[in-house]
Design a protein around this nucleic acid. Structure first.
Length: 379
DNA sequence: TCTGGGGTCCTAGGACCC
DNA sequence: TCTGGGGTCCTAGGACCC
């Protein structure tokens, strides 16, 4: 039986939440991002402008008027300032976004309970067993989200997650797009291959180099060629998705695999001259990770260190310890041993600490058998 | 005007075991 | 002395996503 899967994406989520607070900014180019510090006044003239920004922040969200000027999420704010110097820059208020995120998800759950979380502003919804004609049902969900939050969203409904993700983007903002397999040649194949969730900058570039620009061209490409170029797994997947095939279920529960904290410095730090500062930062990161672990009720065995040099190269080291932990001092000791294995011959711009191989809350699972002490069944 | 922070998944080699 | 095949765990890096 054919499924009915929706993808719901909040429109310019962070910026839209800010507009609820500052309605006088409606219609203006607004960018959310940067570090704390940017304080908003109460008149339009008092809002900080992008041109005054100095630092290493990126745009987290841009309103549609800002996007029209070329500003996109992920773009460095200094670059964004060159494109839209008069755009208003607001700092992010994550507590607010989490509040609104819970509100919209709860509103959807009242109508359709099978929801897969895809981050703060996106969900998949399995509508297969929910009664009602598709367009009317999707409209009901949009209305419920607006009533609960005052915010608009875009929805795509198709037989699978892959197509729904693409469909929800087709008529943004405030979109509602319903597609079936028969729509693939006209609505999907003309789109850039990059529109497929899972084809990123690197794969997109490689496809371009092969003369494959659209999803239709990808569908027409010889499967053997794709496997040759991209490997068995990814190559085969490319052929499948180009034809709109995707059987992944909507997953309502998921176990956390790792918890991490990282920070990029205001300026690159020198390992010798700024040794004390770097030490403080690492201690703080361990404290914060330990706090996160305790708050969420996890302990972990794999402790990882991440650092990024001034030339943006990133290296990681990790170590797996005997006893899973959520203790800051234990994490710090493991991080210290990782630090000894990494070259420190350049200035640093980022440090990060990660804990993986997590044990779920309450599960005091025994550590797996160690080398040399495996259970012997046939000896 | 270079490029945040928090995640997931995949690959690949080596150690070690049966 | 030479010859395997298969499995898990650990580590490092990279692509990708929100």
């Amino acid at each position: 039986m054919q499924r009915r899967i929706a993808h719901l994406d909040m429109d310019a989520f962070f910026a839209s939440v800010e507009l609820l607070r500052y309605p006088q900014l409606a219609g203006q180019p607004v960018v959310v991002g940067g570090r704390r510090g940017a304080l908003a006044g109460d008149s339009l003239e008092d809002f900080p402008r992008l041109r005054h920004y100095v630092g290493r922040g990126v745009a987290t969200t841009a309103t549609y008027p800002a996007r029209a000027l070329g500003v996109h999420s992920g773009m460095g704010l200094m670059k964004a300032a060159a494109l839209a110097p008069d755009a208003i820059l607001l700092p992010a208020n994550f507590d607010d976004y989490i509040r609104y995120s819970r509100l919209f998800k709860a509103a959807v759950a009242e109508i359709a309970p099978l929801i897969e979380d895809r981050g703060i502003d996106e969900i998949y919804i399995d509508l297969t067993e929910v009664p009602g004609e598709t367009v009317a049902l999707a409209q009901r969900i949009k209305d419920a989200v607006r009533t609960a939050t005052g915010l608009s969203c875009s929805i795509g409904v198709t037989p699978n997650k892959l197509l729904s993700k693409i469909a929800s983007d087709l008529q943004k903002p405030d979109g509602l797009t319903v597609l079936d397999y028969s729509d693939i040649p006209t609505r999907i194949w003309p789109l850039a291959a990059r529109k497929i969730n899972g084809i990123g900058p690197r794969a997109g570039e490689k496809l371009d180099a092969l003369g494959i620009h659209t999803i239709g061209e990808l569908a027409a490409a010889a499967p053997e060629t794709l496997i040759e170029e991209f490997g068995q797994h990814f190559g085969h997947w490319l052929t499948e998705v180009a034809h709109g095939r995707d059987e992944r279920p909507v997953v309502t529960e998921r176990e956390t695999k790792s918890i991490s904290r990282e920070t990029t410095f205001e300026r690159d730090l020198d390992v010798r001259a700024d040794r004390d500062t770097l030490t403080d930062i690492l201690v703080q990161l361990c404290d914060r990770v330990a706090g996160d672990l305790k708050r969420k009720g996890y302990v972990g065995r794999t402790i990882g260190l991440k650092l990024r040099y001034d030339d943006f190269r990133t290296v990681t080291r990790d170590i797996t310890i005997e006893q899973a932990t959520d203790d800051a001092a234990t994490i710090l000791a493991a991080v210290r041993s990782c630090l000894k294995r990494v070259p420190l011959d350049r200035r640093l711009r980022l440090l990060g600490v990660r804990v993986g191989t997590l044990l779920p809350p309450g599960e005091a699972a025994p550590r797996p058998p160690q080398r040399g002490e495996n259970l012997r069944l046939f000896d």
